[in-house]
Every structure is written in C-alpha cells, then in structure tokens.
Amino acid sequence: MKLHMQNLTKSYHSGHPVLNVPDGTLGEHGLEGLIGPNGAGKSTMMGLLTRRIAPSTGTVSLEDDTDLHTLNALQSHDVARLGLVKTNQRIQGFESLTIRDSLRLAATSHADETYRGVLTGSEQDDAIEADIDGYLDRFKFEDPDGFAKSGGEKKLLDILRCMIFKPKMLLMDEPTAGLPEDVTNEVMKMVGEKVKSKEMTVVIVEHDLELIWKHCKYVHFLSEGAILFHGTPKDVKKNRVVAEKYMGV
C-alpha cells in the first residue's frame, strides 16, 4: 500500500504553510523512516494523510493492489477502513476501557457492533481473543486484565491497538518516545516481521536515528514543511543538507 501526495499544503491562521509537499510518495519500500527537526511538520503530514487534519490545498491518494482511492472526500473512519491507521505521538486512550477491551474494540469489525447484537448476545470471537492473548504474552503489562497504568503502557497499548486492527499501512508517530528500551526493541522486531511477511507497509517518525538507520529501507527528510531529501539510509547519512539542518554537523 502506498500514499501519494500532490500539492499538499497546510497552513494555520498565520498563513505561512507548515507543510508544503508538491509531490511525494510514502510506502514504496516496506519500512520507511520520516525524520526532521521538531516542528518540521512530520505529525502534521501524518494527520493530513489519515484525514485527521483537513488540508489547505492538494490531494492525498491511497494506492492498494487494485485501486487508487482519493482520500480528500473521506472521513477519518473511512480511511481506517481502507486499511490506513496511525499511532499517536501524544498519549491517546480510552480511559474507561481495560487493556483487553481496548484491543477488542480495535479488532472488532464495525459490522458486528449492532443493536441486534445487544439482544442476540455477542459471543466472544475466538480468533480475536487468541490474537489478544498473543500480544499480551509478548508484551507484558503490569495488570494485563486491568487498565494501562503508566504513560509507557498507554503508548504501547496505542501501538498494539493499531497492530491488532491489521492495517495494510501503518504510520507511527514517534512510537518509542516513552517506551523502555526492551519494549522498543520488541516493538521494532514485531514491526519488522509484519513488514517482511508483507502484511503491512510502515512509515516511522523517529528522533532516535540509530533505530531509523537500523530498521528502515528508505528515509524521507522533512524540514520546515518540505521534503528536502529522500533516499536509502546510507545516502541520507551522507547528505550535506540533512547534516546541516538536522544532525548539527
């Protein structure tokens, strides 16, 4: 699954665009990185791509095996149903749902959430429960049958919700900020497996460049709202603009 951006811009009240991408494509290389200084517009770009933020101009389209969908007319939930979801930079959650219920919510199809289902009684979906058990075996929560407690647990749950949703394309906005190192490694390992088995393509926003160089096949560099460079990690590391603007050399 690939995302195309055409003349995509976003400006807030001040008028000066925070994002301006005349032409760009994400998701051609399995696992990609999106890097750039704070305030470069990385989160804004991800919000535009998933229709959480409405663009000022331009179009976003999603290409899967068979079709090209223009996302502009769609709402957030339509985009998710096409298979595109994102994890959040800022902690997000459902405070009255337990870890398991939160995962069940993400894994359950909207077609099963009906008024009639209230009457007929909704038996547990064994496949979903097995999936949840699998994730909770792999990732340890302090109280796996209760609520996510720390910020780190909430952040991890946000990632697992997206995983269990089984998207075709996943955008991850600073997923490892706030996660302990071993959890980060396990998350990246899992992401790597899913990409390798072609279950999903993934784009990661990260400040931890070692992680980017290690896992990503391709990297986009964003600064002041524009994609200034993209290429393999090797090329990006060598690039003078990236070095000057970001790595403080």
């Binding site: 998933t50 959480r52 709402q75 957030s76 939930h77 998710a80 149903r81 979801v85 994102k86 959040n88 997000q92 959650g93 459902f94 919510l105 993400a106 909207h110 959430e113 919700r161 949703f165």
Partner: peptide, 9 residues
C-alpha cells in the same frame, strides 16, 4: 477522534 481513527463511524 481515536475511535474514528480505528474505523468507527
């Protein structure tokens, strides 16, 4: 917003 981002209308 989070519910919508998980495909819920």
């Amino acid at each position: 917003e989070l519910a919508a981002s998980l495909g819920k209308d």
